[in-house]
Design a protein around this nucleic acid. Structure first.
Lengths: 196, 196
DNA sequence: GCAATTATTGACCGAGCGGTCCACCAAGCC
DNA sequence: GGCTTGGTGGACCGCTCGGTCAATAATTGC
């Protein structure tokens, strides 16, 4: 056999993901990636391929992880309406508002690359369709629990909730204070989720 | 006197703005800017300074222009509620959905640069505060016309409308079809603007 | 312990970047 | 018609980029 790897793939992907998250794709250089991962160029290329492939791996890892958290949260919250409210308020759930300022890696990547990078666009479509489906499922549950009107289209409602949430994420990136952001999140949630 | 300029500053700014709009800041090279403007490096630097300054000029020109259109639309529409609905639906007002896919230059720039570029962050804050104020003014008018509840906070309502609109802009960039996007825009508008 | 295999490291590469500089040119002034 | 002034175009610069490669190190099978 041969020499084993001296690094943990998951750990490296997390470090790389954070770097892309904070600086974006174009503004992140290979030197940055070497610094945050502690690896040399050869190791990075040997293990993940070039910068673009590495980015896609990190992005996929991010969407898989947050998709898992979302599914868990939506299904494990006893009352579906509470889960939906938590979904909308998620961008401001971080106490200091740091998460709000950082935004969402998938959203940032979509803005930066979706028009020019087909792989990123595909990942964006995949992610937002999956998210819409998860939320729609939760909407159906809320309807079954009598908390949402039964005649509303679940998919359409889910899309509107997702748009509202992503709008919040975006407002966070404009430097809007966490207090105003939280208030706006509440206003949005109240409009869609009566009596939560 | 000396040799006069052989180009129209506004025209160059428009061409440059479109380039940044389509490709983003980092992905636009000076060669791109020379190509779309038809100018040499010397002329660009002489007239606008370096790439960053030129970008800020183009961005400011964009925000001023669209801010002007918005003010015009909000104040000249007879019924304020219709104006607010038009505001929310603006991202899908383009027939083919091309505008929806392109997004908003200010929003794209915010996502790409706000965390690392103080000038862009400042411009983002300025723009969104100004927009909020304009929309809030329109909300007050709608309240006066009896179309919106008088007890709603205009600023807070304006922020929620803006968040909804920006969420729509973002969904457009994920490749969501113009039909679904239009439907979602309608759903959002209906929630905030009853009976429009 | 030697061979085979794979990870690691850092020197190295060509290309493209943003930015500078200078020779040239057009227009007004005397 | 020179002279001055400022616009123009392109050659040029140093740098950093993403990416390659060969020498070396670490591990297992025999």
């Amino acid at each position: 056999m041969a020499r084993p790897r001296q690094f943990d793939e998951e750990q490296v992907l997390r470090a790389v993901r954070d770097q892309f998250w904070d600086a974006g794709y174009a503004a992140t250089s290979l030197e940055d990636l070497m610094r945050v991962s502690g690896l040399g160029k050869g190791s990075l290329y040997g293990a993940f391929g070039d910068k673009h492939q590495l980015f896609l791996r990190a992005l996929r890892s991010y969407t898989d992880t947050s998709g898992g958290y979302l599914r868990e949260m939506l299904t494990s919250t006893p009352r579906a309406l509470d889960a939906l409210r938590a979904f909308v308020m998620a961008p401001v759930s971080d106490p200091g508002g740091a998460a709000a300022r950082r935004g969402c890696l998938m959203a940032n990547s979509t803005c930066e690359l979706a028009t020019t990078d087909p792989d990123v666009l595909a990942e964006a479509r995949r992610t937002y369709e999956a998210t819409t489906a998860l939320v729609a499922e939760c909407v159906v549950r809320a309807q079954g629990e009598g908390d949402l009107p039964a005649d509303a289209d679940p998919i359409e409602t889910a899309r509107a909730l997702l748009a509202a949430q992503q709008g919040l994420v975006f407002m966070g990136r404009t430097g809007l204070g966490i207090d105003q952001l939280t208030a706006t999140a509440g206003t949005l949630a109240d409009r869609f989720l009566p009596d939560a």
